[in-house]
Amino acid sequence: MNKSLAKIRFKKSGLISSVQDHGRFGFADYGVPYSGAMDQFSYNLANLLLNNDDDAAVLEMAIIGPEMIFEMPTTIVFTGAQVEIFVNGTPQPIGKLLALQHNDVVKVGRFKKGQWLYMGIKGGIQTPRYLESRSWFEGISDHKVVKNNISLPYKVFFENKEHPKSHPKLTSNWFETNTIDVYRGADWDKIPKSIIRKLSEQNFTIGNQVNRMGIQLETNLSHQIPNILTSPVYPGTVQLTPSGNIIILMRDAQVTGGYPRILQLTDQSINIVAQKTNSDVLNFKILNY
């Protein structure tokens, strides 16, 4: 097996493609967010299918995917959103191990369902680690998103045998549920009863801004809750802004915040809302805990 490095070059970079891994932990004391794949479930699945280390770096993509040229042989797999994938023009399903040859062209087409697509690669993307993680984050890593002039290093693997024809059929069922499991947030006691009722009864619609810091819900829960003194927040913390907006903090969120923290998503709920797209509807199921 040859372990020299080759490069993924980008004919088209896509819109917000970035290198992500499990996340950057242990630096929140210095104000550093976790970052890492938005949908950790699909991220882990990609590395599992490839038999990678569980913190191997992948390419995360959304909205408009890239078109890539692989210099040398390797194996890749796609997980997450339901997206059209083409290898040298031939459609390929997500979830299938794809053995690539010298100069193969991989094109990510239309996003049909879900927000974030992951491309795992055997051995993981070999971009540098910054503070122990390869996840890209502005101000920490050299890049924030993939641009046409950036190339991504990976380990070359010559495959001796073909991959099995059968592969797991990855569906979007797991993230199509509208019910989001949540715990009561740290500032739950400050929320008036009328808002609590709305939180557990109302449907909320995902807003149209896509970013890695947070998801805004289209709502207007007017209230008189005073702001809190700046306090810790985490991915999955749900904030209520002074103007009555609801924000679900995601992987790139700040480590502290000044808005009341009304709910806290479970780990799997964070992955589910990550895959929600503009105008999807959700409701909160408050866990008795």
């Binding site: 630096f27 210095y30 104000g31 101000g139 700046t230 700040q254 480590v255 502290t256």
Partner: peptide, 9 residues
């Protein structure tokens, strides 16, 4: 008091 908002803030 503590760091938050941005890395190093």
């Amino acid at each position: 008091h503590f760091y938050g908002f941005l890395p190093g803030f």
